[in-house]
Every structure is written in C-alpha cells, then in structure tokens.
Design a protein around this nucleic acid. Structure first.
Lengths: 146, 146
DNA sequence: CTCCTTAATGGGATTGATTCGCATTTGCAT
DNA sequence: ATGCAAATGCGAATCAATCCCATTAAGGAG
C-alpha cells in the first residue's frame, strides 16, 4: 500500500477529509527525521511549490494532534512548538543544549515504571514524553579542544 | 538554617543579588506543590501585598533557570511555561489531560537507561524531563459514572 | 554609616507564535 | 452533476514573553 493511500485511510478513519494539504503535511513530517516547527513545515511546503497558509498549517497540526496521528513536543527552546509524526514505536529525544541537534531514540523501557505509578495513584497513563538534555558528541569534542 | 538564609546562600553562590523579589519568588515556589506559571506567580505575590512587575517575574525566572535553581517544564497545554523549584530529588509528573491536575513523582529509575544512551551516542546527558499524560483517579471515576 | 558602582526593577511598548473571524473554496456523499 | 458541511486563505486579534530605558536599590569599600 502506497504512502498516500495509507494517509487517506488514516484520515478517513478519523472522519477527516482527505485534502491535499493534509497529505502534503503528513508527507513532509514522515520524511523528516526530527520534529519540525509549524514554520519549517510552511516553508518546506512553499519550497516544494505548494501554496498554503500558516493558518492551514496550524489547523492541520491541531487536528492531527487531537486525533493522535502526530505528537506535539516542546523542548522549552524559544517558545516554539515542534511536531512529529507518530511511528510504530514512539520516540524519545536527546537534545543538545549547545548546537540544538535532536537525536531520536526508539527504546522505551518504562512500562514497568508506568504500571507501578498507575497502581499507586489510580492514574491511567495514556502517553508520556521523555526528553534528555546535554551535549552531543561533536559539542563534547569541541569543548575538549579549547 | 532558615529558609530565607538558605536562599541568600544560593543566590550569593551564583553571584546574584539577594533581592526581596527573588526571595519572595523562591518562597512561593517552595510552598507550591505543583509547577507554577509566571502569571500565577505574579498574582500570588500581588495577593500577598507584594508590588512586583511581570518583567521582574520573567527575569527572575530566567536567571534562576539559567543557574539551575529552578526548572522550566512545558506541558504543551495552552503554550505556557511552568516553573518548579528544584528539590533534593528531581521530579516527574503525571498530568491529567481532563482536569489538568499535576501529580509530582519523585522516583526516577532511568539512570541505567541514560548511561546506555550516553555510551551509544557519545552524548553527555545533563538533565531530563519525563511527563506522563492520562486520566487521574477522579476523572477515571467520573467517566465511569456516565 | 555613607558613598559609589552596577545589578535589578517598573512599566510601557514590542515581538513573535498562535488563534480567530468570516468570506470563499473544496471534498465527498447522494 | 449537486448540495452541504468541512477546510482554507488572509488579515486581524490575542497572548505569553521580551525589550528598552529611566529609576531604584544591593552591597562592597572606606
């Protein structure tokens, strides 16, 4: 099944219209290895010759987050939201505080921990986010050389 | 050692002036069981009869985050930043997506996982955030009753 | 205790991301 | 092909956060 067809099904299942803009947005997000901002998305689409407005980008992102197709991830950096498509395995991130590089990580060993908390607090956990901050290999090396 | 004295020392150690506003802000944050927004802080201080401006609140929060005395935590809810004083043990949170209640959790079983990632990616992790989302005991019960 | 330097503050203006309102267009069921 | 509700565009509005600059106050030196 082609990628576009897969998106159609996803949208249909959620009672969302299969518009070309939503298709394009999902394609760009699928292709991106890192979380993207609304503006990056907008500019990328423009570069590809697609005419779209910022409102549409934001609205599409909102509805896709709401339907659990993409995730909004905040890194506390310059008050901007980043968005990432949900893949089979969810992701965590290593964020370099110096060069801002974001490394996705797919391992997630937290089920046990989560279960214990659910029991203790009577809380049903439906999702979680883990972000780790520090210095990437390159920035570590750069500061060694000084 | 009194609380105020402790704050004085923290500020002095960081070469920050021990101003009454910073004292007040730290007191309010210490007393708060949950992360607070800049606005909440501002209003709380006003209620206590302390005259302060939003600029000062934001500036104090910035410098305290920078010096690692408090932490900025974003919960993706209405694009607002929340701040929390750092205690002996760092904290994670259970965030109820319905009533927005935030339950702090002090257990943190991630050192092993973190070490493995550091090795694999040559990344030095200096901090991390884990937030879990779902439904609290009360909101679970409310939806049962329907 | 007083003086002096400079960090900190107030308050208003500004920025910048995100949201809103409403007229127009488009998807899609029939 | 037709009709209607959903989606879009574009400009205006909102709202948290930041900036500017004149004023105040912390705290070290004497």
């Amino acid at each position: 099944m082609g990628v576009k067809n897969r998106y159609s099904k996803m949208l249909k299942r959620e009672n969302l219209r299969n518009t070309s803009h939503r298709q394009s947005i999902l394609e760009v997000m699928e292709a991106s290895k890192e979380p993207v901002s609304a503006e990056t998305l907008y500019l990328t689409l423009r570069d590809k010759g697609i005419s779209i407005s910022m409102s549409t980008v934001y609205r599409a992102l909102d509805v896709l987050v709401e339907r659990n197709i993409i995730a909004k991830t905040d890194f506390t950096d310059n008050n901007r939201s980043l968005f990432e498509i949900k893949r089979e395995e969810h992701r965590h991130h290593l964020v370099c505080v110096k060069c801002k590089k974001i490394i996705p990580v797919t391992e997630c060993p937290f089920h046990e921990y989560a279960s214990a908390l659910e029991e203790r607090f009577g809380f049903s956990i439906t999702s979680h986010k883990l972000e780790m901050f520090g210095y990437c290999r390159k920035c570590n090396k750069d500061s060694d050389e000084k």
